[in-house]
Design a protein around this nucleic acid. Structure first.
Lengths: 229, 229
DNA sequence: GTCTATATGTGGATAGAC
DNA sequence: GTCTATCCACATATAGAC
């Protein structure tokens, strides 16, 4: 099947170009040229430009989510009472996207990270896997910060996602070639440390602003379900 | 001068459309139509599309920075020893962009916020005002977290910027019309509270990853200068 | 499955009348 | 200063030969 190889070449080329120039910064001609294929082969394999983007994203999205779940389950297995510490839990969530970062995936990852509190991007195509992941993680993070209410918790999650996205973008610009894994590991620990401090901070006293985003409802309903169970 | 009015109309139209569709999502034709002007009037007033974008950004950038400086100076005037608390200092930095947020400026603000640790976007055109602002803020934030070294400090600044950007994007999507100022005020306090917790957290123990970004050098040199003085 | 050729639209920028 | 008309490059998508 030469078709499968062509498909992969197209995905590789698209991924690199998207990483450098953004999803809006590159056209099908350029992608096809980079891959050494004809423009129309893209339409053949992915039906449309949107189909190509979805495929590029999906190729990285599922492995990262799987790795997150794998790490968290491993941490639970190793911990007393099956309850790993907050840093260990956060590490399982934050490490996979940062470790997966290389010059190929740099453009994709910020989008994936954002998707945690913004379903619209990854959306439809991979909604199932995404929901499975957050349903597992949310209650396990939540129980480490009982001092705040659900709405404040959701805001702090937003903040952590912002921190993660920032790291991904920063690393993308930083390293021409992929940053060595020692540096990345150090960054994961810095990030985990800060995220832990943020979630451990006391209740803010002040009024908590309500969110009107759809994602808030989803997160709150997941928290509710797990509280009932 | 009817020219000045046209110029403003074009800026208004461009700002709204950019906010809704992103800088890459809208063309000159659409902007001109929205403004009720001819396409070529854009070229006349701003030379090019890039010139228009720069003008749109600049119109919001300077007032927000001025407001930041004004708030911090007011806080210093009111505080003992001219040294306001960390929350008060952070408030002066975080409040102006969040309060300036309305449906017009929503697309612009994340870019402005990012510019704090990424000069490339706002860049050349407004570099002077930007540098003045951070030169004033950096040492005054820095002295509230002596427990960490400069490099770890820079990373935590990155994190805070990520949190801010996240808020701006979230609020943009949230409110069809501009969120009421009570909600925004509550959000500012949540954000300030979390940022304070983050900067107050102890040293991470682990190795701190070095940054290779140009902005790191700039921040470090500013911190160095203020330490010498 | 993969190519060439092309259809059809839209992007930004410009020339020149008024 | 502002308009109409137009240029030219490039976008995505499709048709049809091989």
């Amino acid at each position: 099947m030469a078709g499968e190889e062509t498909r992969e070449r197209l995905l590789d080329a698209a991924e690199i170009l998207f990483a450098d120039l953004g999803f809006d910064g590159v056209g099908l001609r350029q992608i096809a040229e980079q891959a050494g294929e004809a423009v129309s082969s893209i339409t053949y394999h992915f039906t449309s430009r949107d189909g190509l983007i979805k495929a590029v994203i999906g190729r990285r999205f599922l492995p990262i989510n799987d790795e997150r779940l794998r790490l968290l389950r491993a941490a639970e297995y190793a911990a007393d009472n099956n309850t790993p510490s907050l840093p260990a839990t956060l590490d399982a969530f934050l490490r996979p996207p940062l470790m997966a970062l290389d010059k190929h995936t740099a453009a994709i990852l910020p989008i994936l990270a954002s998707s945690f509190t913004n379903m619209t991007q990854v959306a439809e195509s991979h909604r199932g896997a995404f929901r499975e992941m957050i349903e597992y993680f949310l209650p396990r993070i939540r129980k480490h910060c009982p001092q705040i209410d659900n709405i404040e918790f959701v805001w702090r999650l937003h903040f952590i996602i912002g921190m993660l996205v920032r790291c991904l973008q920063s690393m993308h610009k930083t390293g021409e070639d992929s940053p060595d894994s020692e540096q990345r590991d150090a960054l994961v620990r810095q990030l985990t440390h800060s995220a832990q401090a943020l979630l451990s901070a006391p209740h803010a006293e002040d009024a908590v602003p309500k969110l009107v985003e759809p994602i808030q409802e989803i997160i709150l309903s997941i928290l509710q379900e797990s509280a009932d169970a």
